[in-house]
C-alpha cells in the first residue's frame, strides 16, 4: 500500500499528474476564496451554494443533451447565483433569519436537483451516467480539458479578487465605514458571491456537492493559527487547500476505488485538529515562560 502511495508521487502516469494538478488548483482557489467567506462569516453560504448547483447541472444536461463540462459549469453557476439572491432576499425581506434562509435555499434548490436527477435517470437511461459524480467528486476522472477550465475560471476569479482586494477587506471588516468611503458595497458583495459560485462550481468536481463546504472553510480556518495578517492568511489558505487536495487524492489513489472528496476533507480536518492542539501547547508554553 505504501508503494502505491509513493507511486502516486512519482507522477509517472500522465492521467494521474493531470488529476493531481487539477485537484491542487481546485484546492488552491477554493481555499483562497474561502478566506473571504470565512471572515465575512459566510462559510455556510458556501454550503448552500454547492448544494444549489445541482439543479443547474441537471437542467443544462436536459436542455442540451450533452455533458460538456463548460455547459454544465454554466448551468451550475447560474443556479448557484440564483440561490445567493434567493437566500439574500428571504433573509433581508422577511422576519426569517439568515440561518433559516440558508437552510431553505439549500434544501429547496437541492431537492429540485435531486428531482431532476432522478427524472433524468428514469427517463434518459444510460446517457446520464456520471452526473452523480458531482455529488461526491471524482478527482481521478479530471481530464486535461477539465484542468484547463479549472485554471481559466480559477485564475479569472482570483485576479478579480486581487484587483478589489482592499475594497473587499474594508467591506468585510466594516461595511458601514467602507460605504462611507464611497466603496460600492453592492458591487463588492456581488463580486464575492460570483467568485464564490464559480470557485465552488469548479470545486465540486473534486469533492462533490455535499463536502464542498469543507474545502471552503477549512484552509482559511487553519491559516488563522499561523498568521495574524490577512495577506499572509490568503496565501496560506491557498497553499493549504492545494495541499489538502493533493494529499486527499493521493490517499484515495492508494486505496483504489474510493471517492476523493471524503479523504480531502479528512486531511483538512486532521490539520485543523493538529493546529488547535499545537496552538494549545504553544499558549501553555508561552504563559509558563511568562511571555
Amino acid at each position: 500500500m505504501i508503494e502505491s502511495f509513493l507511486n502516486f508521487f512519482s507522477f509517472s502516469h500522465p492521467n494521474v499528474v493531470i488529476a493531481a494538478i487539477g485537484v491542487s488548483l481546485i484546492g488552491f482557489f477554493s481555499g483562497s476564496v474561502g478566506t473571504f467567506l470565512v471572515l465575512d462569516k459566510k462559510s455556510l453560504l458556501g454550503d448552500a451554494i454547492s448544494h444549489s448547483l445541482l439543479p443547474g447541472i441537471c437542467l443544462a444536461f436536459l436542455i442540451n443533451g450533452s455533458k460538456s463540462p463548460l455547459l454544465l459549469l454554466t448551468g451550475a453557476v447560474i443556479s448557484g447565483l440564483m440561490s445567493t439572491y434567493f437566500v439574500d432576499f428571504i433573509s433581508n425581506k422577511s422576519k426569517l433569519s439568515r440561518d433559516a434562509a440558508l437552510a431553505i435555499g439549500l434544501s429547496f434548490f437541492f431537492s429540485i436537483g435531486i428531482m431532476l436527477l432522478t427524472y433524468i435517470q428514469h427517463n434518459q437511461g444510460s446517457n446520464q451516467a456520471g452526473l452523480e459524480s458531482y455529488l461526491f467528486g471524482k478527482a481521478a476522472s479530471i481530464s486535461l480539458e477539465d484542468t484547463v477550465m479549472i485554471s481559466i475560471a480559477g485564475v479569472l476569479s482570483y485576479v478579480s479578487l486581487l484587483i478589489f482586494y482592499r475594497q473587499l477587506k474594508a467591506t468585510i471588516f466594516n461595511r458601514s465605514f467602507a460605504s462611507s468611503q464611497g466603496i460600492s458595497i453592492k458591487f463588492i458583495q456581488a463580486l464575492l458571491n460570483a467568485c464564490a459560485v464559480i470557485m465552488i462550481a469548479i470545486g465540486i468536481q473534486a469533492v462533490g456537492v455535499v463536502l464542498m463546504a469543507a474545502l471552503i472553510l477549512a484552509p482559511a480556518s487553519i491559516s488563522r493559527f499561523y498568521s495574524k495578517r490577512l495577506e499572509k492568511i490568503l496565501i496560506l489558505s491557498g497553499l493549504i487547500g492545494a495541499f489538502g487536495g493533493l494529499m486527499g487524492t493521493a490517499v484515495s489513489y492508494t486505496l483504489e476505488g474510493m471517492p476523493t472528496g471524503p479523504w480531502i476533507v479528512l486531511v483538512l480536518f486532521v490539520m485543523s485538529i493538529l493546529s488547535i492542539v499545537l496552538n494549545y501547547f504553544k499558549t501553555k508554553w508561552q504563559t509558563r515562560s511568562g511571555l
Binding site: 470565512v38 462569516k41 459566510k42 462559510s43 455556510l44 458556501g46 454550503d47 461526491f136 455535499v210 463536502l211 463546504a213 469543507a214 471552503i216 472553510l217 477549512a218 480556518s221 488563522r224 493559527f225 476505488g257 474510493m258 471517492p259 472528496g261 471524503p262 479523504w263 476533507v265 479528512l266 480536518f269 485543523s272 488547535i276
Partner: peptide
Amino acid sequence: QHRYFNDDVAIGLSFTSFFALGVILIS
C-alpha cells in the same frame, strides 16, 4: 470555544468530517 472558529465554521467543519467518515466507511 476557540476564537478562530465562529459558529458557521464550527458547524461546517464538524458535519463535513463526520459525513466524510461515513462515506469512507460505506465505500
